[in-house]
Each structure stands twice: as structure tokens, then as C-alpha cells.
Design a protein around this nucleic acid. Structure first.
Lengths: 162, 162
DNA sequence: GTCTATACTCTGATAGAC
DNA sequence: GTCTATCAGAGTATAGAC
């Protein structure tokens, strides 16, 4: 709390005019992150065949998360510091996001475009793979964001096709 | 330190007969984890074509990590609490492990079995995907470890083939 | 709304008796 | 090798002045 206060230019005590306690502050941060993710996703997606939608998902996920490394880091690392009740609420939002990818996969399986035997596992696997970009990607490195997106899309596409 | 002491049945002060400080204890834990991972891997791998080796890697990685969820969790979450020097040493071991997968991918590209345009990125992507199993897999759930291994191997295999 | 001051708790680590 | 006692610092949170 002292560190946060210093970063925003007040003393620690003054923070309690804005949050009842530290747990609420963490929860509000994480909830805002998840809400904004879902809104941005629903806003970005356009209709199309499952393969097109999957490509949009890959592009959106990589770019959205790469642009917010600190928020993504906190959203993952601080999960264990939420109360049971707060954790359940954040977890529900995460599942809602995962379900959006799973729905794309289900649609692809239904129309015969995808060969995926367990859409839930595939969704979890793909999200883990895509989020992993944040652990190594650095702006100005060997690869551009476009390069990264193309490389991951190539792997994702092949992994769900017949 | 008090919590660790309680778990092993001594008072906090007694721990300092075994470690000079908390940083050393964390580093030793993480170093042991990485050393054992590399030894277990080199011990488990058998020669074969790149595709066979890749299948062995997938099987080994999923099972080894799923069997040690707490060690894997610490090895990732506590990275930021290592001193720069200690971090560099752990990071080198991680890279060594990643290089083993990348070598398999390179061999597959060299003999024409794999279609992977960036073996470094592919190695990072696959490891992130496989380690992600730990975030959701629970013994006694809907799927057995064999099921999980088969599902992930199917996705990995397809993602690197032409 | 912010400050200073402070209460209270927890933390890593050390000293010295046994 | 373990204990008790303790230190110094940091943590969250509150009280009351301005």
C-alpha cells in the first residue's frame, strides 16, 4: 500500500479514501481487467466461418495480452491472494472468456471444419499457448508482433484441422 | 520461515542451522527442481526419429509436471523473488530444458518431417501449452492422465507437421 | 481529501542457554 | 541441533488535525 501510495503521490493513509482495504483494491483491479477483456473481445469479433473466427481470436488474444503485460501478470499471480468469494467471481469471468474460444471450436467441429476431439481441453491448451507469448516477447526483439501472430496462427490452425 | 518451521516440526530459529537465509533456501529449492528435471528428462529419453522424440517429450513433460504441481508452481511464481544472480542461474537451466525441445524440432525440420518456420518460438509455444495442463487437470476428474496425454499429443503432432 | 502519527501484527534473522 | 527471547523493519489499517 505504501508503494502504491508513493506511485500515485500520496501518503499510505490517503488510499483508504478510495478503497476499504487491500483485498478490495486487488479484486477491483482484477475484475476491471476481466470485464474490459470481455468487452474488448466482443467488440473486436466479427462474424465469419469458424476458421475465420479462430484466426480473429488468436490475433485478438495475442495482441490484447501483449499490450498489458503487467495486468496479465497480476491477473494470474495474484489469484491466490483473493478471498474464496472474490476468487469465484474472477474465475467465472475467466471461464466465460474460455467459453468463447470453446464455442468457436464447437462450431468448427459441428460443420466439419475442425478435427478436435475435446473442445474444452483444446480451448485450455490454446489459451495457455497464446498467453505464453508474454513470457518471452519483447518489443524491438528479433520478431515483430506481426511475425509472432503469424507463427502462432500457423500452429493453432494446423492443430485443429484434420 | 515460521510456517516452514512449523511444517517440519521445529522453531523458526532452528531453520538457520540448514540455510544461511531465506533467499538461499528458495534458490536451493528451485535449483534442485531444475536439476532433477533435466536429469529425469535425459534419463527418460530414448533415441528415435524426431516424431518419436517429440512424442516422448510431450509424454514426459506432461507427466513429470503434473506429478509435481507445487514445485512447478513455485518454480514459476517465485522467479521474481530471486536475486539477479540467482535468477540468471535458474534461467540458464530453463533455457537448457527448452533447448532440448528445440533440438528435436530442428532435427525434424532438417530431415523434412516437420514444418516449423521458427523452432525457438515453436518450442516456447509448445512448452507453455503443455505446462498449462497443471492449471486445470485434477486426478479423478473427467479425464485420465492417458486421455490428457493423447489429446495434447494429437494437437502437438498436427501443429508441427506439414 | 490529505496529512502526520501511531497501533498492532507479522517478518527475517540473531544471541545465548541448554 | 533446538529452544526461548528478542531485535529491527515492514506490513495494513485507523485516528484525528487541517
Amino acid at each position: 500500500m505504501r508503494q502504491i501510495a508513493a506511485d500515485v503521490g500520496v501518503q499510505a493513509g490517503a488510499l483508504y479514501n478510495y478503497t476499504p482495504d487491500k483485498q478490495s483494491l486487488l479484486f477491483d483491479l482484477m475484475k476491471a481487467h476481466m470485464d474490459e477483456l470481455l468487452i474488448a473481445y466482443d467488440d473486436a469479433m466479427q462474424s465469419g466461418a469458424p476458421l475465420d473466427q479462430l484466426e480473429q481470436f488468436v490475433s485478438f488474444h495475442i495482441r490484447y495480452h501483449a499490450a498489458r503485460p503487467e495486468a496479465v501478470f497480476i491477473a494470474y499471480m495474484e489469484l491466490r491472494n483473493l478471498t474464496d468469494e472474490n476468487f469465484a467471481e474472477i474465475e467465472a469471468l475467466r471461464r466465460s472468456y474460455e467459453a468463447r474460444l470453446e464455442d468457436i471450436l464447437k462450431a468448427g467441429v459441428a460443420d466439419g471444419a475442425f478435427d478436435v476431439s475435446d473442445t474444452r481441453v483444446a480451448a485450455m491448451a490454446l489459451i495457455a499457448m497464446l498467453t505464453g507469448v508474454n513470457t518471452w516477447f519483447r518489443e524491438g526483439g528479433r520478431l515483430s508482433m506481426d511475425d509472432v501472430e503469424a507463427l502462432y496462427w500457423d500452429m493453432v490452425r494446423k492443430s485443429v484441422l484434420c
